[in-house]
């Protein structure tokens, strides 16, 4: 994993907020496109945005820190349950609920990060799985808090800013989620280029060397995990608020595996890749799995094998290479 995102670097010098602006414009464009393609299925697009935030969150630890984890859904699910309970308990203001999700996600992220990043390699992977499964087993057991296998339902937040109600066509939910995604994405674009984000990349590439130049590796990884938890928390909060129900699937192993697939499909270590992979995968899934879920599994499996063999750095890297080739050719001609 040595995929440095050099895409935004050069344009950055020419225009101060180019990357941020590009982030907002692309997400707005994706939103409009989604609205045009699936006008009757905004609920699906809203769910897609929640999962996209989880993929971005996974990119922070897997792509930028090199921590392989198969238990990331735990952060998402714990926040979703926390937000659901807060909402049922009387906190109905959507922005406040987002805050609840962020706090819950950060705490879960810090705890699991403190456990998982202690090790490298196989123990790390197994610990991440164990923590994910532990949370899933607890979610099933503590049915008074989580609703067990029936799911936690009856989550009805107030109108956004007191003006926009959550309607049954999910229009408000969709726009609200899209705005939140844009804000988070822009903040993350800044964050990964901060000295802290760059140091995390250094740790990923060579943690011994990072230690030698005086970086405290373990605390930084834990902080990164907490940040990642906050992002996953936003996704979980959006999911709970817009769907109105939180089920056991939000903490399941399948969810963790799926977001890892999306991330690597797009290209780990690159926020654009995470965004791209998540959107492409879920739209594809939405169309294919409607016909036959088992054919869907075979297809995803073949897709994964193809990625490992032909595009090991993700689709976004392949597209970037292609882009630069075409661009250079055009310049010469």
């Amino acid at each position: 994993m040595t995929g440095l995102s050099t895409l935004a670097k050069t344009s950055d010098r020419a225009f101060p907020f180019a990357a941020e602006l590009m982030g907002i414009v692309s997400i707005a464009a994706l939103g409009v496109l989604g609205f045009l393609l699936f006008p009757d299925d905004l609920a699906f697009l809203t769910r897609l945005i929640g999962i996209t935030l989880l993929v971005l969150s996974l990119d922070l630890v897997t792509g930028y820190c090199g921590v392989a984890t198969l238990g990331h859904a735990a952060l998402f699910g714990v926040s979703a349950y926390a937000v659901g309970n807060a909402c049922i308990g009387g906190i109905r203001e959507p922005i406040l609920l987002l805050g609840v999700g962020i706090v819950a996600g950060t705490i879960t992220g810090a705890i699991s990060g403190a456990l998982i990043t202690r090790f490298r390699g196989l123990p790390q992977l197994v610990l991440s799985i164990a923590i994910g499964q532990l949370v899933a087993a607890l979610a099933n057991k503590l049915s008074s808090v989580t609703g067990g296998s029936d799911g936690l339902s009856g989550i009805t937040p107030d109108p956004v800013l007191g003006l926009f109600r959550f309607d049954m066509y999910s229009r408000t939910a969709f726009v609200f989620s899209l705005v939140v995604l844009a804000v988070v994405f822009v903040l993350l674009l800044r964050f990964v280029r901060s000295p802290f984000g760059l140091l995390c990349r250094g740790i990923r590439d060579d943690d011994l060397r990072a230690q030698m130049i005086g970086a405290m590796v373990y605390p930084r990884l834990v902080i990164m995990y907490a940040v990642s938890g906050a992002v996953a928390g936003v996704g979980g909060a959006l999911n709970a608020m817009t769907a109105g129900v939180v089920g056991l699937d939000s903490v399941s192993f399948e969810r963790s595996a799926e977001v890892l697939v999306m991330l690597v499909l797009g290209g780990a270590g690159n926020l654009w890749g995470a965004l791209f992979g998540s959107v492409v995968f879920q739209i594809f899934e939405h169309i294919v799995s409607a016909t036959n879920p088992f054919h869907w599994m075979t297809l995803v499996g073949l897709l994964l094998i193809a990625i490992v063999l032909f595009a090991p750095r993700g689709l976004s890297h392949g597209v970037a290479v292609l882009w630069s080739k075409i661009f250079r050719r055009g310049g010469r001609a």
Partner: peptide, 16 residues
């Protein structure tokens, strides 16, 4: 990560 993805992919194909 490569090993995980390849072997998860094989698993999915076999399940399907």
């Amino acid at each position: 990560l490569t090993q995980l993805l390849l072997t998860i992919g094989i698993t999915f194909v076999i399940i399907g």
